[in-house]
Design a protein around this nucleic acid. Structure first.
Lengths: 166, 166
DNA sequence: CCAAGATTGTTCGGGTACGAACAATTAACA
DNA sequence: TGTTAATTGTTCGTACCCGAACAATCTTGG
């Protein structure tokens, strides 16, 4: 998938449509490649590692965050995972039904909910994360170690620049 | 949002959980930053440019692909946009109801469906894309021109490496 | 010609995904 | 101390999002 047409073909087409309006194609290329990349990486990890365990991408991210930081408040999970609290409520309900996590009210602040893994959830992650990481390694295997780090750094810059100016 | 904990903190936690199993944290950092970046970029563009026009991210991607390449077959839209044909069916139905696109059967192959923009759809894109591109430019404004291009190149490498070995 | 196989877009079911409105709870401040 | 403001997780409505099954259509081999 992704890209039956070359970049120059697309640029020429867009210039035709807009009749000479100045467009920053480098910015477009960067943004659209972030998305192609994210989609490709996600699909690959879902197909090869997650689906056999019956976890969606988002469910895995939630499991991972809870695994590392439990007990953790839901607002922190949403923040770390990068999705809304409304989404998180649904995913947590699914994971609770499958007996991978538990929810409990915080004794210190009645508004907060604390999330933990069950034994089954912990066992799942101990088995799953090494496989997940092996596939992550394979995914960046076309890059040198330096390039991999550069990629992470540049992406972090973009993210921070967006989240900085609210 | 994103990252209340430093990278080293997280690494130490994961090592505790797995008891010394070798983990490639550089790969994890790259993959997770692709997602943080993609989410941040998408949310920013939706909030600032797309929502005022009533378009979702996916709807905009579909509109953009059709705008550039119309008439275009649905399978090509899905491929260019990076989502499944099942997803595309729903989005096209939405866009058709809003009178932004039309569907017609291909006269040459009865299985294919050709998609075009309506005049309203074309007008929308001529107005919207320059604004979208201006925000894209702002999003990568924390990077030099060289860095922006490096980012795109590295992401393309990752995507191609995944899509190569099917 | 014609049957077996491949391809396309749609439908269906289950699971995200998010903004807005909401009730419960805590914090702020006069 | 008490009333207002802020914060949290859930609910609701709408819109994705995908795999699998499907009917319609085209291709292929004989």
């Amino acid at each position: 998938m992704a890209g039956h047409h070359t970049i120059t073909e697309t640029e020429r087409q867009v210039e035709n449509k807009l009749g000479g309006l100045p467009i920053n194609f480098t910015a477009t290329a960067a943004v659209s490649n972030i998305f192609r990349g994210a989609t490709a990486v996600r699909n690959q990890l879902e197909r090869t590692v997650l689906r056999p365990s019956g976890l969606s991408w988002t469910a895995f991210v939630v499991m991972w965050v809870v695994w590392v930081w439990e007990p953790i408040e839901t607002r922190a999970i949403a923040s770390e995972g990068g999705f809304s609290k409304a989404t998180l409520t649904g995913v947590l309900t699914t994971l609770e039904a499958r007996d991978f996590v538990t929810r409990e009210k915080s004794p210190l602040d009645g508004r907060l909910v604390l999330v933990r893994l069950t034994d089954a959830g912990r066992e799942l992650m101990e088995n799953l994360f090494p496989k997940f990481n092996a596939m992550e390694e394979e995914i960046v295997s076309g890059l040198t170690a330096d390039e991999t780090q550069t990629l992470a750094t540049l992406l972090r810059k973009v993210t921070q620049s967006i989240e900085g100016n609210d």
